[in-house]
Design a protein around this nucleic acid. Structure first.
Lengths: 231, 231
DNA sequence: CTGTGTCTGTCGGCCAGCCGACATTCGGCA
DNA sequence: TGCCGAATGTCGGCTGGCCGACAGACACAG
């Protein structure tokens, strides 16, 4: 259930990291700005030095669905580079960020020169594949409350900062965004979160969610699992 | 919108393919049998020589969600090998199949010895990532009919055999399975497909779906995209 | 500190789609 | 060939959650 964050940069040894940094071009991205956008060419791969990036995919109805958040040390924009074809997702800075970029060509050369990086790349892709698979399963098989609970658990596992038994979710999310991630409406999210808070599962500290009891949340996420059957 | 099937084996050059075949162990799998199951160790990677495999992930409520179908020439079971940790998905033969299996260790050695295979692996992962992303977006943003229409379009693009303007979907799917893939009920799928048939969008030939007009289906899948707004 | 826009919280009405129930048809196997 | 289980088709009743609407509550710029 634990998803290793597969921090590309931090797991690269010093020499290789230096070699990569030498090839890469650094860029400062202010909060809210896109590093790349859906529809664009997709000829670069990126590494997040500092800050936070959200990777979103536009839906046919026009809103952006957040697929995952990218944390410092992670690689992003990789799938399009290896798959070919343009971007289908956008990368948007949640806060001021520092990113390194590398052209497809340079990256491929780097990979041949540094075989360990190959495994790291494949791990990054695999890890995301696993998370997306879990998302799909949740989406098709759970009701709204359960989907919200499971989303919070996933976020806690990947992006939570533990402090005693409390987990601080270090990602900026509006109810609207949560709703778009789990396929429900803003109102339903508000109601569910209010409910969780009243149950003592979580609390809100200046717009950040803090999970008070992961166990209780897990319980909730499994409660409705049995679709009641008869009796 | 087109998803290259990323046929690993067929895109490997002859020499490399022979090398891989030499390392691999072949195995005949009868219809309905699992090559590996969720919860298992995940220390092998597989190639489909002939037949058809479905890759499923169990949901908390017990049923198996089909994530994708594996066609001859494709690699599967790759994500767990590169990511580490056990299987979260199962691979089940839809029909009698011939698979090649390779241990993690042998596969990694093969990759270092045959660099082109690295790109093919990454392409396979990336391609699946893209499809799953599309699935997630559809699931969160579309209503039941639209989800079904889009699923059929995706299946047609990847697994359709074109014959004039008609596309034969060469995958064995019950309404029940379709329902589990798009997060709805068997009855709703039956109704939607009946509707599509009456509209002349598709027809059924001994339990296989044939899409008569991809254009019309595309239209349907986009019609409800605008949530009507006001006016 | 005050205005302005975005975010959160809450309510009632309404409908898509779920659920159970049943009839029918298909296709594979004895 | 006939049988049986699985798959398909159809129907009402019921309800989770969507929608619109509106009222606070922040956050931040000027």
């Amino acid at each position: 259930m634990q998803h290793t964050p597969s921090k590309f940069l931090t797991r690269l040894n010093g020499v290789d990291r230096a070699a990569l940094a030498a090839l890469a071009k650094a860029r400062r991205v202010p909060r809210g700005e896109a590093i790349f956008s859906a529809g664009g060419p997709g000829k670069h791969v990126y590494f997040l030095e500092s800050g936070k990036i959200k990777i979103c995919q536009p839906s046919s109805s026009g809103n952006e669905i957040i697929l995952w958040f990218c944390l410092p040390g992670e690689i992003f924009g990789l799938a399009e580079v290896s798959h070919g074809g343009g971007r289908v997702v956008s990368a948007i800075a949640c806060e001021e960020s520092l990113v390194l970029s590398l052209s497809q060509k340079d990256f491929l050369e780097f990979l041949t020169a540094h075989p360990e990086a190959v495994m790291l790349s494949m791990q990054a892709l695999s890890s995301r594949l696993r998370v997306l698979g879990e998302m799909v399963v949740n989406l098709v098989s759970d009701d709204a409350n359960t989907r919200i609970a499971k989303l919070l658990l996933r976020l806690a596992a990947r992006y939570g900062k533990r402090e005693g038994s409390i987990v601080h979710l270090d990602v900026p999310l509006t109810h609207e965004e949560i709703a778009s991630m789990v396929g429900t409406t803003r109102q339903t999210v508000t109601t569910a979160i209010g409910q969780f808070r009243r149950q003592g599962v979580l609390s809100i500290e200046n717009r950040r969610i803090q999970i008070e009891s992961e166990d209780l949340l897990t319980e909730i996420s499994q409660a409705a699992a049995q679709p009641a059957k008869h009796r």
